[in-house]
Write a protein that binds this DNA or RNA. Sequence first.
DNA 1: TTTATATATCGCAATATTACGATTAATTAT
DNA 2: ATAATTAATCGTAATATTGCGATATATAAA
Lengths: 109, 109
Amino acid sequence: MGVTRTEIFTQEQNELAQMMKALAHPARIAIIQQLLKSQSCICGDLVDEIGLAQATISQHLRELKAVGIIKGTIEGTSVCYCINEEVWKHYSKTFGELFKSFVEGKSCC
Amino acid sequence: MGVTRTEIFTQEQNELAQMMKALAHPARIAIIQQLLKSQSCICGDLVDEIGLAQATISQHLRELKAVGIIKGTIEGTSVCYCINEEVWKHYSKTFGELFKSFVEGKSCC
DNA sequence: TTTATATATCGCAATATTACGATTAATTAT
DNA sequence: ATAATTAATCGTAATATTGCGATATATAAA
């Protein structure tokens, strides 16, 4: 009990859920929004702009990196993060397909 | 420690995160997919098709209902669930806007 | 009224997430 | 070499989520 039973779901369902989960925290949304605006992509700037501890931001960055949605490049003593275009497009397409699969007026109640 | 610090984020960021969270579980994705296919929308059928206990499915249904993405109608002794069109469109639009705000080739690393 | 059926809720155990201080590791500047 | 700077990781506490059996609730059938 207490563990998500991924084995009973399809790969697609698990992947969709994982994608959603990666963005299911306001700090991670904030990070993504910053990177989309594409000004400061330096980790330290993200720490300043979002009001969480450095360790916490680093943890959120790791989660986003784990699903591939961002990538980081070391620049001297700091790290520059940005959106991984390829993965971002994949997310965009997958989410888009889910939402467009809704057929207007088909609701039964 | 251990509580999401919603107070330091914008309403938009919190709302986006909450929307993602509602769909951040394969069982809830599976439920939504079933309702999109719009055959069996009866709770009991969902329990049969997804392999989780009745209590667990009921809990996931409650979470989806809590964010308004589905609605349930009592039909005799059973309950018919379906997508809430209005809320679904709102989700679709909000997610769409986030993803289309990505500017091609702007990544700095 | 009694019984059967369907769903929601309660209570609990297992696990996961969030946050942060402290520390480590790696690079740059002195 | 040493100190300063930046980010990752460790360890831990607080809280949230997941799953399910048991029970409650509500309607329908007998």
